[in-house]
Structures are given as structure tokens and as C-alpha cells.
Design a protein around this nucleic acid. Structure first.
Lengths: 216, 216
DNA sequence: GTCAATATTCTTGCATACAAGATTTGTCGT
DNA sequence: ACGACAAATCTTGTATGCAAGAATATTGAC
């Protein structure tokens, strides 16, 4: 046994949900999962309970587990909260960043520039994640960073869709530039505002999201 | 079988932790809990995994579960995030509240006044909770409300300690008044600022918290 | 008497077993 | 042929069993 069966199962199933391998609404059968992963039902159940606690699936008593379908409105609400948390992280980062933080932020930003100008939206997705995580770290609030990472992860599939819309990568990168500037200048309020706007989904971006969701 | 043993266990243990019945650092023995609640180890384990996912306990592989001790600094961080989320809820509430929302907020506020002027800090605790929940509801963001309730619950024990310090109930109620005013006036930014200040722990309040924590 | 190595006990992690509720299938009546 | 009731089947919820790792006690050497 490599590490921890339950943890492995939790990650596998979570990834399956995030990668849309288990579509929203799909029923997660315990024995099916157990045989598929070559374990017994017990660890499968424990993994499912964890996913239930996180809010990725719903367990209806005596009726099994299904993948939750957030729906466009709830996704919007989640981005709204994410924007607020990112804004806080940015404002704290502007006041507290260290030399290592600055190096990490600039490095991630440089990588974003590469993948952005290369037009590689998949690469940009990962570099963008690193960029944002660098800001969480620079906030020097462990709890905030954890919350951000968790929410970021849950929003991962939709964020990815967003990057596919025309020109989004370019504008995203441009916004990053201003954010870096504000943080390194120590302008907490500016960093907060810019990050909030950067993350939140406003105006036509919401229609884009709904349209992309519907086309799946 | 009444309803759902795991859920009951989860609540029981969670309450035990929140009420400091299981102190931070305490080891949670599976068979002990099982016999205590008259069930087998399986549902106990599942309940523990859920608490682990929530972040209330830590499960070290092969070494059992212990209640997490956040420590003053982390508690401060949690209040920091809570302040931000409450601020968002307040600003949304100011823009979106309905007639029923206003009625609920004013009712909760009136109850706070009663328990405040009566000097009953325990009663005030519950009325205060209703007041804040009324604002979450008025924000009309289901996801935000859920996050707020969850964090509020985790901070419950510390919030309670805070109310015990001299004059805190009175100043808290005074702040509520200004918050109600801002929300009902539709002043989103003012509501956000006031709520943020109301919830966050600044200056001597942090020393108070540390002191009270140490005296337990 | 103290430290260390080993043996014992205890606890967790996973598998299997069994019971009870839910779902499906089959049969009968109209 | 359609609907309703009943039986069979399937699935979940809980209990128990067994193996492996961690904690603890014991014994031996110095």
C-alpha cells in the first residue's frame, strides 16, 4: 500500500468530477467504484463522505451519491466570493510581500507572458494558477491561502472554459501586469480592486460562461 | 434506526469540540467514541473523516485523530477572512434586500437591543447570530451564505469569548445600529466597511483574545 | 539504575458479512 | 393493454473480523 487508499480515492474521484469524467448529475455507485479501483466499499464510502463535506457531491440517504450540478447562477456566486478572497489576498500581499514572494510573483508573471504570447491557452492555464498561488503565499495568511486554493480548485473547470473565449488570455495577462505593479508598489487598495475585477465575472463574461456551459 | 447515525455522530463530536468538551490536542479514540455512542467503529470513522475534511480535526495516518488547535494567529486569520466575507454579504444585502429581508434584519436588531440593554451576554450571543444570518440571507447569494455560516460556526467559541470582555456587547450593538442604517439606506460601500470593521479583530481586541485563550 | 532491544498489546485501515430500505421486475386483475 | 400490488433484487448502512503499523511494556546488558 503506497500511502493512503482513501486519500487516493478522494483525489481520483475529485479529479474525475473536475475533469467532467463524472458529469454533474451522474450517480456514483459504491461497488462500481470499489471494483474499478480494486478496493472494498469501505474506503470508497469514506472518500465519498469527504467529497460530500467539500460540497462536490450530494449523498441522499439510502439513495446513493450524485455529482452536484452547481448551475450558472451558483457558479457566478462562487466567482463572486472568489473575487473577494483574491482581493483580500492581493491587499495583504501588497503590504507583506518579502523578497522571495516578489521573485516568485515575477517569475510566474514572466511564464504567463511566455504562454500568453505563444497563444497557448493550456499552458497559460497552469502559469496563471502559479501566479495566483504566488499571491496567496505572499499574503502570509495560511488560512486565506487554503480557502483560496480550495475554491480555485472547485472553479477550475469553469476557469478553464473562460480562457477559451476569444482574447481572454491576452486581456487576462494585461490585467496581471497592473496587479503586479500595484502589489510591488505596496498599494493595497489598488491591488484589491484590480484583483477583484480580474476574478469576478461581469457583463458579457457571464453570458459567455452560460453559453459555454450549455454547449457541453 | 432513527435517521442517519453518521450525521448524528458528526454533530455530536463537532459540538463536543466547539463546546470545548473535546479540548484542542485531545485524541479521539474510535472505539471509545463508538462505545460511548453505542455504535460500531464504521460510522464513527466516517464522521471523523468528515470533520477532517471540514478542518476541525487532523487524522494522522495510523496514529489516530486529534482535535486541531488553531492557535491565536490562525484564529486571527480566520476572523480576517470572516470580516471580508461579511463585508461582501453586507454590500450585496444593501443592494438586494427585499421587504422580508428588512423585516428580518430589524427584528433581529430589536432582539439584540433587548438582550444588550438587559446585559445578558448569552442571549445577545444568539440574537447576534440571528442578526448576522439575516444579513447573509439578504445578500441573496446562497453560496456566500453557506460559507459565512460555516465559518461563523467554526469561530463560534472564540466569538463567545469575545463577548465576555467588558463593554463588548454594548459597542457591538452600537455598531449594529450603523450597519442596519447603511444597509437599509442602500449604501453598499458603507455597509461593507462597517461590517468589516465590526467583525475583524484589531488592536487591543487581539490581545484580549490571546489573553482569554491562554486562561482556558 | 539506566538504556536499549525485543516482545506484547493496542489501534488503525481495509475487507467482508449481514440487515434494512429502495428499486425493479413480474404477475394479476380490470 | 394499462395500472396496481407483490416478490425479488439491488444498494446502502452498520457491524464485525483480520492484518499491519504504532505505542507500550518487558527483559537483558552494561
Amino acid at each position: 500500500m503506497s500511502e493512503n487508499v482513501v486519500q487516493r480515492l478522494r483525489d481520483e474521484i475529485e479529479n474525475g468530477i473536475i475533469s467532467n469524467d463524472f458529469a454533474p448529475g451522474a450517480r456514483l455507485d459504491e461497488v462500481q467504484l470499489a471494483t474499478r479501483f480494486g478496493v472494498s466499499r469501505t474506503p470508497v464510502r469514506e472518500a465519498l463522505m469527504q467529497l460530500n463535506a467539500i460540497g462536490l457531491i450530494e449523498i441522499r440517504p439510502r439513495r446513493g451519491a450524485v455529482v452536484i450540478d452547481p448551475g450558472p447562477h451558483r457558479i457566478f456566486e462562487m466567482f463572486e466570493v472568489m473575487a473577494e478572497l483574491e482581493g483580500l489576498a492581493g491587499s495583504l500581499a501588497a503590504r507583506r510581500f518579502t523578497d522571495t514572494d516578489r521573485t516568485a510573483i515575477l517569475a510566474a508573471h514572466a511564464d504567463c507572458e511566455r504562454s500568453s504570447s505563444a497563444g497557448n491557452s493550456d499552458a497559460y492555464y497552469y502559469d496563471n494558477e502559479r501566479f495566483h498561488k504566488a499571491i496567496y503565499t505572499a499574503s502570509h495568511s495560511g488560512f486565506l491561502a487554503e480557502q483560496c486554493v480550495a475554491l480555485h480548485r472547485r472553479l477550475q473547470p469553469y476557469r478553464r472554459l473562460q480562457l477559451r473565449v476569444r482574447n481572454r488570455v491576452a486581456t487576462s495577462f494585461a490585467e496581471h501586469g497592473a496587479i503586479v505593479e500595484a502589489i510591488l508598489a505596496g498599494d493595497a487598495e489598488q491591488a484589491r480592486t484590480l484583483l477583484r475585477q480580474h476574478v469576478s465575472i461581469q457583463g458579457e463574461r457571464f453570458s459567455d460562461l452560460v453559453a459555454t456551459l450549455a454547449s457541453r
